[in-house]
């Protein structure tokens, strides 16, 4: 349901204490790549102390480390009341199964799909009950593939489509990889491409990327209007199959309309209940 996921480093007070004003739907506190090996304890204690004291009003995940020896210490520092789940790097079936044995019950997992191998496991991963979303990590993937990314997205088209296919087949959210530079035009191209392919949301590595992502991944005014008309007609007729403006409407379209309207309401984009 979220539109934007923003990574913030777990060891920078200035960013932690402003996480709730960056307008991201989900904050991912990074304890993995953004934190040097010798500073993991600093980041864990800083993030934990902040969340317990200030309880920011935003959905929070923590990107834990991939190695069990590190993520066990990570898990010990996650304040469960304030964190919805973990983002798990370099996901594959075996590592996720191992993580699930020690993961506290209240936490769900967003699986970072960022190795070539993961794409052969992706169906199993998507099917796992506690996986809430599949998240494409294109930087790591491209370096393993020897591929070069550009705003056209050609290099990662297959990865994106495969991930979306698996996520949608199991009713999970598909979250797109961040765009790594701060050029707004490149981000616009990259994000529009992701949105058109079917991603539900996109991640950001800088707060200034968030407004554009939110705008792009929000339902548009026309879409909201159409969804309202479909739902109104459905409720009036009481059937799952009818024609509207000469086009056939059936169950998947009706379901999509409900989902879109829920997202619009959640982000304050629903201009009221009028249907004309």
């Amino acid at each position: 349901m979220a539109r934007s996921y923003l990574f913030i480093p777990g060891n920078v007070p200035r960013m932690l204490q402003n996480m709730d004003v960056y307008e991201a739907d989900v904050i991912i506190i990074d304890w993995e790549d953004a934190i040097a090996p010798g500073e993991k304890d600093e980041a864990r204690i800083l993030s934990e102390t902040f969340l317990k004291k200030h309880a920011p009003d935003v959905e929070i995940y923590i990107r834990i480390n991939a190695e069990p020896s590190l993520y066990e210490a990570d898990l010990a520092h996650i304040p469960l009341n304030h964190v919805k789940g973990v983002v798990y790097p370099k996901s594959d079936t075996a590592s996720l199964s191992k993580l699930l044995k020690v993961l506290p019950d209240s936490l769900d997992i967003i699986a970072l799909i960022e190795t070539p191998g993961a794409f052969f496991d992706i169906k199993t991963i998507a099917a796992m009950e506690r996986i809430s979303a599949l998240f494409l990590g294109a930087e790591d993937l491209c370096s393993e593939l020897g591929a070069t990314r550009d705003p056209s997205g050609d290099a990662i088209l297959f990865a994106r489509s495969t991930l979306i296919m698996a996520a949608k087949a199991y009713g999970k959210d598909a979250v797109d990889t961040p765009w790594a530079d701060l050029d707004a035009n490149n981000l616009q191209k990259d994000a529009a491409r992701a949105k058109n392919l079917g991603f539900d949301a996109k991640s950001a590595i800088h707060p200034n990327q968030v407004p554009l992502i939110n705008r792009l991944f929000s339902p548009g005014a026309e879409q909201i209007k159409d969804a309202k008309r479909i739902i109104a007609m459905h409720e009036r007729k009481g059937t799952m199959r009818f024609s509207l403006d000469g086009k056939m409407v059936d169950k998947p379209i009706i379901q999509r309309a409900y989902k879109l309207l829920e997202k619009a309401r959640r982000y304050g984009l629903d201009g009221g209940d009028s249907v004309d």
Binding site: N18, V21, Y22, E23, H206, P207, N208, P211
Partner: peptide, 11 residues
Amino acid sequence: TKDPLGLKIAR
């Protein structure tokens, strides 16, 4: 400003 807080205030 490039500061995210400054830009939020502006928006």
